[in-house]
Amino acid sequence: MTAPLGTPVSPWGGHELPAHIVGASPTRAPRKRRPGLWIGLAVGVVAIGAVAALQTTANLGYDDAEANFESARDSAQVSVTNLQQSSDALTATSEIANQLLQSDTGVLTDPAAKEALGAAVTEAGDLASAASDHAAVSLPDADPKPTFFWELFGETDELDQDADDLDQLVAELDAEVPGLADAGTSVEEAGLGFLASAATAATAFEAAHVSAKNLDIIALRDAASDVSGAATLDDLTVPSFVALQDAAAQVVASEQTELAEKAGPLLGARLEIEAFARSLAPGVLLEFDWNPIVNNAGENGSMGGLTTWWWDEPDRAVIELSNSVAEQWPADRSKALVAHEVGHAISVKCEDMYDSSTQDSIEKWATAWAIGMGFTDDANGVWAYGYPPQSYIDASYACR
């Protein structure tokens, strides 16, 4: 191959590369990096930060909502407990009142008081039942805490709603409690009024059955005192009321027995004499026995009397009279003898007015008392025991 002119020829033959090929290589410009990678990384970092922030916010919000929910639930539980306790208390009071109604024989109680108590018990029963149903409400529980922020946000909203519902429930349950308390007060007041009517009636009942034995009358008084002293309806209320009614029944039975023993042609005179004696000694509980012979007297126109009395409360005595006292009634001598015996009986009210240490002074006192009451027939004790000291007669005026 012929070399072009001006081109050096190698002595070894071959060929040379063109200058533009074999010459110095041109400097290569630096390759530019694309900005998309950095932007992607930055976006990734921002996204991760945003997610972390959302997760943190969601966690904190959920924790606050859960704490608020638990507080609301605790308050609701307290309200449920209070309502149930109030319902139970009303039910207990109503049950006592209902037992009073069931055990009432109608002997002593006022029908109007009984009707009022029945109405109060009925109303209380309805309120207590409704309250107990409301207190049986099932309170919600918080579900396990979610993991992801989108779940946390949803559960937070639900907890907030549940807390609001619980607050509303608390308001509703608490609003019922005062009504239950008022109903309990109504039942108790009606119950105490019912009991008071029976206790008060015992006095008139006693007066209507004066022929009953003293101890049965005393038992009636004691039972009435127990009932009238009640300040609340409790475990003792019903037994006390039943005891009062039993005492009243025993008074009736006792009187019937006494009247049966006094029955016969002298019954009318006997009862008149007993009423006469009671009129002379107001406040002294008197019981009477009748026999053919008393204190060795009763035959051939004679009359006999014997009195036993007790210094302790209440003022009481038992007067025994011979049938002849009734047979001669209402002669002055019968009245004088009865007055003498009442003088013994009424001494329970005036024991400090005379010397009770000897039988003679005791009899002189009874005679003086009869004289002081205006009974001057010798059957007043003068015939049997002699005339009493004027000091006894003077003292007897203060014993009435």
Score class of each variant (00 low, 15 high):
residue 3 A to W: 13
residue 8 P to I: 02
residue 9 V to P: 03
residue 10 S to H: 06
residue 16 E to Y: 14
residue 17 L to A: 12
residue 20 H to C: 06
residue 21 I to M: 11
residue 22 V to Q: 09
residue 33 R to A: 06
residue 36 G to V: 12
residue 40 G to F: 15
residue 45 V to D: 09
residue 48 I to L: 13
residue 59 N to R: 14
residue 77 Q to E: 09
residue 82 N to Y: 01
residue 86 S to I: 03
residue 89 A to P: 00
residue 91 T to S: 13
residue 93 T to K: 15
residue 95 E to S: 14
residue 95 E to D: 13
residue 97 A to L: 01
residue 101 L to H: 03
residue 103 S to T: 15
residue 106 G to H: 11
residue 111 P to Y: 12
residue 112 A to G: 10
residue 118 G to N: 09
residue 124 A to D: 13
residue 126 D to C: 00
residue 127 L to C: 03
residue 129 S to G: 01
residue 129 S to R: 12
residue 136 A to W: 05
residue 140 P to E: 06
residue 142 A to S: 14
residue 152 L to K: 15
residue 159 L to F: 11
residue 160 D to C: 00
residue 164 D to P: 00
residue 167 D to R: 05
residue 170 V to T: 11
residue 171 A to E: 14
residue 179 G to Q: 01
residue 183 A to E: 10
residue 195 L to Q: 10
residue 198 A to K: 08
residue 199 A to T: 06
residue 203 T to L: 08
residue 204 A to E: 07
residue 206 E to F: 03
residue 207 A to C: 00
residue 214 N to I: 06
residue 217 I to D: 02
residue 220 L to H: 10
residue 222 D to W: 01
residue 226 D to C: 03
residue 246 D to T: 14
residue 247 A to V: 04
residue 251 V to P: 07
residue 252 V to A: 14
residue 252 V to L: 14
residue 253 A to V: 08
residue 257 T to Q: 09
residue 269 A to Q: 15
residue 273 I to R: 05
residue 276 F to V: 04
residue 278 R to F: 09
residue 285 L to V: 00
residue 287 E to R: 01
residue 290 W to I: 06
residue 291 N to V: 08
residue 293 I to H: 08
residue 294 V to P: 14
residue 298 G to M: 05
residue 300 N to G: 14
residue 317 A to F: 04
residue 319 I to G: 10
residue 319 I to Y: 10
residue 324 S to P: 04
residue 326 A to G: 07
residue 327 E to A: 13
residue 332 D to M: 04
residue 333 R to N: 14
residue 340 H to R: 03
residue 340 H to N: 01
residue 346 I to Y: 06
residue 347 S to K: 01
residue 351 E to A: 09
residue 360 D to F: 07
residue 361 S to H: 09
residue 361 S to L: 02
residue 366 A to H: 11
residue 367 T to L: 00
residue 369 W to K: 03
residue 370 A to K: 05
residue 370 A to W: 08
residue 371 I to F: 08
residue 373 M to C: 05
residue 373 M to G: 02
residue 374 G to N: 11
residue 378 D to T: 13
residue 381 G to M: 03
residue 384 A to D: 14
residue 386 G to N: 08
residue 388 P to A: 06
residue 395 A to W: 11
